[in-house]
């Protein structure tokens, strides 16, 4: 699978002038422009690949692969999106490629323990209660943001990847299914479990607020 999304319809004149100028320098082989592109966009791409891969080494490898793929594809970049958006998608694809090819990691928990339990009569075994301030006011706090990110990182890989693609990257169900080689129904089932698991990880912290 190519890591570079197709760019077809629009011409580069639709880009802001600074990006058009950057693109011209890149296409002319200006080494300083390549370095500037890496410095300007690398950090954001690294935060994306870290989310998908967990391992810092793999995340950095994926960013390197993403840039090398992007450099090769510069002639095909036609300005359908901003350079940053294009690079972001390439970074996601590079992370997915890395996930497919890396050695399998030690067996992790299935995530079943994070799904809600029910009594024989169908009632919730541990009745849910609402989060203080809806949890959202707490998000203003840096520690809550960190807690949420750590909770996403703690999801089993099979849950985390689907949640990242659907809820964070906002890819639709069919595209996610295609990227992961799954059926759309399997993506829906896994996404629902992933959301429930994330809720379960946050619940003990947000019931009483932070």
């Amino acid at each position: 699978m190519s890591q570079v999304p197709p760019e077809a319809d629009l011409a580069t004149q639709d880009l802001p002038s600074d990006e058009r100028a950057m693109l011209e320098r890149l296409r002319a082989g200006d080494a300083a422009a390549f370095e500037q592109l890496v410095r300007d966009h690398g950090g954001r791409m690294l935060s994306v690949t870290r989310r998908f891969l967990g391992s810092e080494e793999d995340a950095q490898d994926a960013v390197q692969e993403a840039f090398l793929s992007a450099f090769k594809a510069l002639d095909r970049f036609e300005g359908q999106s901003r350079l940053g958006t294009w690079l972001h998608r390439i970074a996601v694809n590079a992370a997915l490629m890395k996930l497919r090819t890396r050695k399998s990691r030690p067996a992790e928990h299935s995530g079943d323990e994070l799904l809600p339990k029910f009594l024989d009569d169908g009632h919730q075994a541990t009745p849910a209660s609402e989060w203080r301030d809806g949890g959202l006011a707490a998000l203003e706090k840096a520690e809550t943001k960190e807690l949420v990110r750590r909770s996403i990182d703690a999801l089993p890989e099979s849950y985390r990847i689907v949640l990242l693609l659907r809820d964070i990257e906002e890819r639709d169900t069919d595209e996610t299914a295609k990227l992961l080689g799954m059926t759309s129904n399997a993506v829906k089932t896994r996404l629902h479990r992933a959301r429930q698991a994330l809720r379960a990880l946050l619940d003990p912290h947000l019931r009483g607020g932070l």
């Binding site: 919730q124 009745p127 849910a128 609402e130 949890g135 990110r149 996403i152 959301r195 946050l202 947000l206």
Partner: peptide, 20 residues
């Protein structure tokens, strides 16, 4: 409890999006 479950389920999604 199911109302609370639904609200916190939706809030978990929002929190995840916002934090990322």
């Amino acid at each position: 409890p199911c109302v609370a479950y639904m609200k916190t389920y939706q809030q978990a999604i929002c929190l995840g999006k916002s934090a990322c």
